[in-house]
């Protein structure tokens, strides 16, 4: 019998009526009088609750009444493939597989933040720099310097995030810095590196996640 079903409501109603009838019938007996009144009250409140729950579906099933199973998980932060071979605060050339299709003028450069190795459980947000100027290492962001050409646009750079997250401990949060030249189509770009850093979250540990 479903918690929100009519049968349960009718059953509770029938029990209420039966209790009223029985209590009135044997009203002169004290134990019946006490028990009858108490049961009547409980059934009336129950009936009202069932009707309200049927209308609003707060608890759509018996299962829901028992709470909800714990399904949120915290995945461990996995190390990036290059974590072991880089030093904090340095700028390293980065040539992941597939980078040839990004349409760049020179080899991409990754600037490792100074706190990268002291916070091994954290993942870092990313600043994608399209100005060609290598930024100084900044706390709490990993920067990637890409030298764009006429062929560089949002579509050609679509695989950058996946390549980055394989090699480094990064999040999927990005800010893009572009120069004053023509905008790369499809990229929401900021003018300065500092502005980009200000917009990004800090490095965080892996979040609680629910199934999607």
């Amino acid at each position: 019998m479903r918690l929100t079903g009519l049968p349960l409501i009718l059953l509770a109603g029938a029990l209420t009526i039966a209790t009223v009838v029985a209590t009135v019938r044997w009203w002169r007996r004290l134990p019946i009088r006490i028990a009858g009144l108490l049961v009547m009250e409980v059934l009336l409140v129950l009936e009202a609750g069932l009707i309200a729950n049927r209308m609003a579906r707060f608890y759509p099933s018996w299962q829901a009444l028992g709470g909800t199973p714990e399904v949120a998980v915290v995945a461990a932060t996995t190390a990036g493939r290059l974590d072991a071979s880089i030093a904090a605060g340095e700028a390293i050339p980065w040539t992941p597989p597939g980078s040839g299709s990004w349409g760049l003028a020179t080899t991409p450069l990754v600037v490792v933040p100074p706190d990268y190795l002291t916070c091994p459980d954290r993942r870092f947000p990313v600043v994608i720099v399209l100005t060609g100027v290598t930024p100084r290492p900044a706390e709490g962001v990993l920067s990637v310097v890409l030298a764009p050409t006429a062929r560089t646009n949002a579509a050609s750079l679509a695989t950058v995030p996946a390549a980055l997250s394989a090699d480094f401990r990064v999040t999927d949060t990005y800010a893009v810095v572009a120069g004053p030249g023509p905008a790369q189509p499809g990229l929401h770009a900021l003018r300065s590196f500092d502005e980009a850093v200000r917009e990004l979250p800090p490095p965080l540990t892996a979040p609680h996640r629910l199934p999607s």
Binding site: A56, Y59, A64, T68, V71, A72, L204, L210
Partner: peptide, 27 residues
């Protein structure tokens, strides 16, 4: 984000709060 059951209840929001706020903070 989905929890399998729990209806429209405090139990659901208790479990969803941490994932939701973690996500918010990351954005």
């Amino acid at each position: 984000a989905v929890v399998p059951h729990g209806g429209h209840s405090l139990a659901v929001w208790r479990q969803m709060s941490a994932p939701a706020f973690d996500w918010l903070s990351a954005h």
